[in-house]
């Protein structure tokens, strides 16, 4: 079970990485939109994953994105680490008390459309906020930062939700 799950994690890692690299090349709408889909890899890792494991995986995918996309090396890894640190706390907020937590990957089918989208939106918000703050290292243009944050979270949420619904949710239903 564990070996199968590990294999699936590697495939998922590569899949998300390729998706991130391809979409960030295709979708370029200027500085207001930040295409960052790779947080979905951290977001969907099994709920029983410890924060330590999440941190290592977050660092790996962040560095991989930085290296392959030609970004400032360390920028995406720094932001994805912040998301990994809070991932389990965010997830707990979307499970009701006493609910049996599935050991498989977090998906729309198990959580339901609204809960899944809310969970992804909050996670993307944490990640994007960290990324934008580390990128600018100032709060002087706060309005610009807020608009970038809002646009990026909405667009990335729409992409993630569409892919999850079209590929995984509908097929399994």
């Amino acid at each position: 079970m564990d070996r199968k799950r590990d294999r699936y994690i590697y495939i998922h890692f590569l899949g998300v990485l390729i998706l991130q690299l391809v979409l960030s090349k295709i979708l370029t709408f200027g500085p207001l939109l930040l295409i960052a889909l790779y947080p979905i890899f951290i977001i969907s890792l099994p709920p029983n994953f410890s924060t330590k494991k999440l941190l290592w995986w977050a660092f790996s995918i962040g560095v991989a994105v930085d290296l392959l996309s030609g970004n400032i090396i360390g920028l995406n890894s720094a932001a994805s680490l912040v998301l990994a640190l809070f991932r389990n706390n965010i997830l707990r907020a979307f499970y009701t008390k006493g609910e049996v937590i599935s050991l498989s990957f977090i998906n729309m089918r198990d959580l339901g459309v609204i809960r899944y989208n809310s969970y992804v939106a909050l996670s993307l918000l944490v990640h994007h906020l960290a990324l934008l703050l580390i990128e600018s290292l100032t709060l002087s243009s706060f309005a610009h930062l807020l608009s970038r944050l809002a646009v990026s979270v909405l667009v990335n949420l729409a992409i993630v939700s569409t892919i999850e619904y079209a590929i995984f949710y509908r097929r399994s239903a």
Binding site: S50, T51, K52, L55, W56, F59, G62, D66, I72, I73, G74, L75, S77, A78, L81, V82, A84, L85, I134, E135, L137
Partner: peptide, 24 residues
């Protein structure tokens, strides 16, 4: 230990950022 790991990896990332970007 989790917090220490986070601080270590975050510190490493920030170090990499400072090595690759003059602005940061």
């Amino acid at each position: 230990t989790t917090l220490l790991l986070f601080l270590f990896l975050e510190g490493l990332s920030l170090f990499l950022i400072t090595q690759n970007s003059l602005y940061q």
